[in-house]
Amino acid sequence: NQASVVANQLIPINTALTLVMMRAEVVTPMGIPAVDIPRLVSMQVNRAVPLGTTLMPDMVKGYA
């Protein structure tokens, strides 16, 4: 099973992602693959992402 990107903290809307905000976890359903974490750094979320939420492609501006 491939790990997905999960929020390590509450990420407010329009926040630029940093490594500290994300962790890799095997979850269902799968979200953004953990291998993409370096690519996500400095991209912004388009909604508030609660702690423990799996990041989906439509939550990150410019990802999809």
Score class of each variant (00 low, 15 high):
Met43Thr: 10
Ser42Phe: 12
Leu55Ile: 14
Asn46Gly: 14
Leu17Gln: 00
Arg47Asn: 12
Gln9Pro: 00
Val6Pro: 00
Val26Trp: 07
Thr15Tyr: 04
Thr54Met: 04
Gly62Lys: 10
Asn1Gly: 15
Met21Arg: 03
Ala3Trp: 06
Ile13Arg: 05
Thr54Trp: 02
Ser42Cys: 15
Thr53Asp: 15
Met22Thr: 02
Met59Phe: 12
Asn8Leu: 06
Leu40Arg: 00
Val60Ser: 01
Gly52Cys: 13
Val20Leu: 11
Gly52Arg: 05
Val49Arg: 03
Leu51Asn: 10
Ala7Asn: 01
Pro57Val: 09
Ser4Phe: 03
Thr53Ser: 08
Val35Leu: 09
Val26Ile: 09
Val26Cys: 15
Lys61His: 13
Thr28Tyr: 06
Val35Phe: 11
Asn8Ala: 15
Ala24His: 11
Arg39Cys: 10
Arg23Pro: 02
Asn46Gln: 12
Gly31Met: 02
Met30His: 11
Pro57Asn: 09
Leu40Trp: 02
Leu55Tyr: 01
Glu25His: 04
Tyr63Asp: 04
Thr54Ser: 08
Val41Tyr: 05
Thr54Pro: 11
Ala64His: 13
Asn14Arg: 06
Val60Phe: 04
Leu19Glu: 12
Leu40Phe: 02
Met59Glu: 03
Gln2Ala: 15
Pro12Gly: 14
Asn8Gln: 12
Thr18Ala: 09
Ala34Phe: 10
Thr15Phe: 05
Pro50Phe: 15
Lys61Asn: 14
Leu10Ala: 06
Val20Met: 10
Leu17Asp: 01
Leu10Ser: 12
Ser4Arg: 02
Asn8Cys: 05
Leu40Ile: 11
Ile32Ser: 01
Ile13Ala: 11
Ile37Gly: 04
Ile37Pro: 00
Leu19Val: 14
Pro33Arg: 03
Val35His: 13
Leu19Ile: 09
Tyr63Gly: 07
Leu19Gly: 06
Ile13Cys: 15
Val41Gln: 08
Val27Glu: 03
Asn8Gly: 15
Ala34Val: 06
Val6Met: 11
Arg47Thr: 12
Val60Cys: 03
Val26Lys: 03
Thr53Gly: 10
Gly62Thr: 05
Ala16Phe: 11
Ser4Trp: 02
Thr15Met: 08
Ala64Glu: 11
Ile11Pro: 00
Tyr63Gln: 07
Val35Glu: 15
Gly31Arg: 02
Ala7Phe: 01
Val49Lys: 00
Ile11Trp: 02
Ala7Met: 05
Ile13His: 11
Met30Pro: 11
Thr18Phe: 14
Thr54Phe: 02
Ala7Thr: 12
Ala64Pro: 13
Gln44Ile: 12
Ala7Val: 12
Asp58Phe: 06
Met22Asp: 01
Leu40Tyr: 03
Met43Ala: 12
Ser4Gln: 02
Met30Trp: 04
Met30Phe: 09
Ala3Thr: 11
Pro50Lys: 12
Ile11Phe: 01
Val27Cys: 07
Gln44Lys: 04
Leu51Phe: 11
Pro38Phe: 06
Ser42Leu: 06
Leu55Ala: 00
Val45Trp: 01
Val6Ile: 13
Leu19Arg: 05
Val20Cys: 09
Arg23Gln: 08
Val41Thr: 13
Met56Thr: 11
Thr54Asp: 01
Met22Arg: 00
Glu25Lys: 03
Val6Arg: 04
Asn14Pro: 02
Val41Gly: 03
Leu10Lys: 07
Tyr63Cys: 06
Met56Trp: 08
Pro29Met: 13
Ile37Asp: 00
Ala48Pro: 07
Met21Trp: 02
Val20Arg: 04
Ala34Leu: 03
Pro50Glu: 14
Arg39Leu: 14
Arg47Phe: 10
Val49Ser: 03
Pro50His: 09
Asn1Phe: 15
Leu40Asp: 00
Met30Lys: 03
Val27Met: 15
Val35Met: 11
Asn46Val: 15
Arg23His: 12
Pro38Val: 09
Thr28Gln: 14
Leu19Asp: 12
Thr15Asn: 11
Asn14Cys: 06
Arg23Thr: 07
Pro50Ile: 12
Asn14Lys: 05
Asp58Asn: 15
Ile37Cys: 06
Ile37Leu: 13
Leu55Gln: 00
Met21Val: 04
Pro29Thr: 13
Val6Cys: 15
Pro57Tyr: 12
Asp58Leu: 07
Val5Glu: 01
Ala24Gly: 12
Ala3Ser: 13
Asp36Thr: 05
Val49Phe: 02
Ala64Ile: 15
Thr15Asp: 04
Asn46Asp: 12
Leu17Phe: 02
Ala16Ser: 14
Pro33Ala: 14
Leu17Ser: 00
Val27Gln: 15
Thr28Met: 05
Ile37Glu: 03
Val20Ser: 12
Met56Pro: 01
Val49Ala: 05
Thr18Asp: 05
Met30Ala: 07
Asn8Tyr: 05
Val35Gln: 14
Thr15Cys: 05
Met59Pro: 01
Pro33Met: 07
Ile13Glu: 15
Asp36Trp: 04
Gly62Ala: 13
Val60Thr: 02
Gln9Ile: 11
Met56Asn: 09
Val35Gly: 10
Gly31His: 01
Thr53Leu: 13
Ile13Lys: 05
Ala7Tyr: 01
Val27Trp: 02
Met56Ile: 13
Glu25Asp: 13
Ala34Asp: 15
Thr18Asn: 04
Ser4Lys: 02
Val49Trp: 02
Asp36Gly: 04
Pro29Gly: 06
Ala16Trp: 06
Asn1His: 10
Leu19His: 11
Met21Ile: 04
Gly31Trp: 02
Ile32Leu: 08
Thr53Ala: 14
Val20His: 10
Val26Gly: 11
Ala7Ser: 08
Thr18Lys: 06
Ser4Asp: 01
Val27Lys: 08
Ser4Met: 02
Val49Thr: 11
Val45Asp: 01
Ala64Thr: 15
Met56Asp: 08
Ala24Ile: 12
Val60Leu: 10
Thr53Ile: 12
Val60Trp: 02
Pro29Asp: 11
Leu10Arg: 10
Thr18Cys: 05
Ile37Ser: 04
Gly62Glu: 14
Gly31Thr: 01
Leu51Met: 15
Gly31Ile: 02
Ile37Arg: 04
Ala48Ile: 12
Met21His: 09
Met59Gln: 09
Thr28Glu: 15
Gly52Ala: 11
Leu55Asn: 00
Ala3Ile: 08
Gln9Asp: 15
Ile11Tyr: 01
Asn8Ser: 15
Leu51Val: 10
Pro29Ala: 14
Tyr63Ile: 05
Ala34Arg: 03
Ser42Asn: 07
Met59Cys: 06
Thr53Asn: 14
Met43Phe: 09
Leu10Gln: 10
Val20Gly: 11
Leu55Met: 12
Asn14Leu: 05
Gly52Ser: 13
Thr53Met: 12
Gln9Asn: 07
Ser4Asn: 01
Pro50Gly: 10
Gln2Leu: 10
Lys61Gly: 07
Val49Gln: 02
Gly31Phe: 02
Val41Trp: 04
Val35Lys: 04
Gly31Lys: 00
Leu17Ile: 08
Val26Asp: 15
Val20Ala: 10
Met59Val: 08
Gly62Val: 04
Gln9Trp: 09
Asn14Ile: 02
